[in-house]
């Protein structure tokens, strides 16, 4: 299987109080075509920064991003814009990732206008198809984001990311702002789309259950570094790194029998986390 996306020794630093803060510290990973690559870690571990580097929304301080054979760091701005039609991104806050003054239809039309020659009736029917694909009726096209629920907005986000038929979707905490009931709807949708279209996902989440459910491969990130990576089942059933174990133990709802009125809870030992 070929690699859709390879990140090679990505480093990203930010200036911070006259010093340098390293948000992503020498991270390399390869994502194979048609698979889901999960990235877990606590907030601030550098997951979103890595995603931005992967899409070149931010230039990495050093390291290379290879997407379908192109070294993205070497492309002209124009070429980079075109490459982005072959990758999609879905962000954490579904309502905030839609322009509050643009109708749903206009939001979905935006990438189509930028990258295809579709116009008029053809454009409208493409928008309807896309909304339909993510489980929204065509009637939603005329609504504004605040008239939709969080889950519906995230469906729009997915429809928009799929508009230019990309092979790779980068999903940055796609369900973190949603209730479990709605999260399940979105996870089902993501899984269906991936299987039907053979898409490749980079799935970022701080929720271990979500990552385990969807991913084939998983990397665990801490303080800008990947501390452990491998096949998803292996990571979750036989974690090698202490930090991975700590995360697994702390995840809520994982005790076989609940701790009713007793001290069966154990506090994880996280040095330096507070």
């Amino acid at each position: 299987m070929t690699n859709v996306l390879s990140l090679e020794k990505i480093v990203k630093t930010f200036p911070h109080h006259k010093r340098v803060f390293t948000a992503v510290d020498d991270v390399s990973l390869r994502i194979k075509e048609g698979t889901v690559y999960g990235l877990v870690g606590e907030s601030g571990s550098g997951k979103s920064t890595l995603a931005r580097c992967a899409m070149q929304l931010m230039r990495p301080t050093s390291g290379r991003t290879i997407f379908e054979g192109d070294d993205l760091g070497k492309l002209t701005p124009r070429a980079l814009r075109n490459v982005r039609s072959r990758m999609g991104m879905v962000l954490q806050n579904p309502v905030a990732s839609l322009n509050p003054r643009m109708t749903i239809g206009a939001s979905v039309a935006e990438p189509l206008r930028a990258h295809t020659t579709l116009k008029g009736q053809a454009l409208q029917s493409k928008i309807e198809d896309l909304l339909d694909e993510v489980g929204l009726g065509a009637g939603h096209a005329h609504r504004l984001p605040h008239q939709l629920s969080g889950g519906q907005c995230q469906r729009v986000g997915i429809a928009r990311a799929l508009a230019t038929s990309p092979r790779l979707l980068i999903l940055d905490e796609p369900t973190s702002a949603l209730d479990v009931s709605v999260q399940a709807q979105i996870l089902n949708l993501l899984q269906d789309l991936q299987q039907q279209k053979g898409l490749t996902y980079l799935l970022i989440s701080h929720d271990l259950d979500v990552v385990r459910y969807l991913s084939d491969e998983v990397a665990v990130m801490k303080s800008g570094k990947i501390v452990e990576s491998g096949a998803a089942e292996r990571i979750f059933t036989d974690p090698q790194h202490d930090y991975t174990r700590t995360l697994l133990e702390a995840a809520p709802g994982h005790k076989a029998s609940p701790a009713v009125g007793s001290h069966t809870l154990s506090a994880p030992n996280t040095q330096g986390s507070n």
Partner: peptide, 19 residues
């Protein structure tokens, strides 16, 4: 039923429709 914990790949979650 909507919780993904303990579900394997490909298994559908029983999402509650609507909101």
């Amino acid at each position: 039923g909507a919780l993904p914990a303990g579900r394997s790949h490909g298994e559908r979650l029983s999402a509650i429709p609507g909101s």
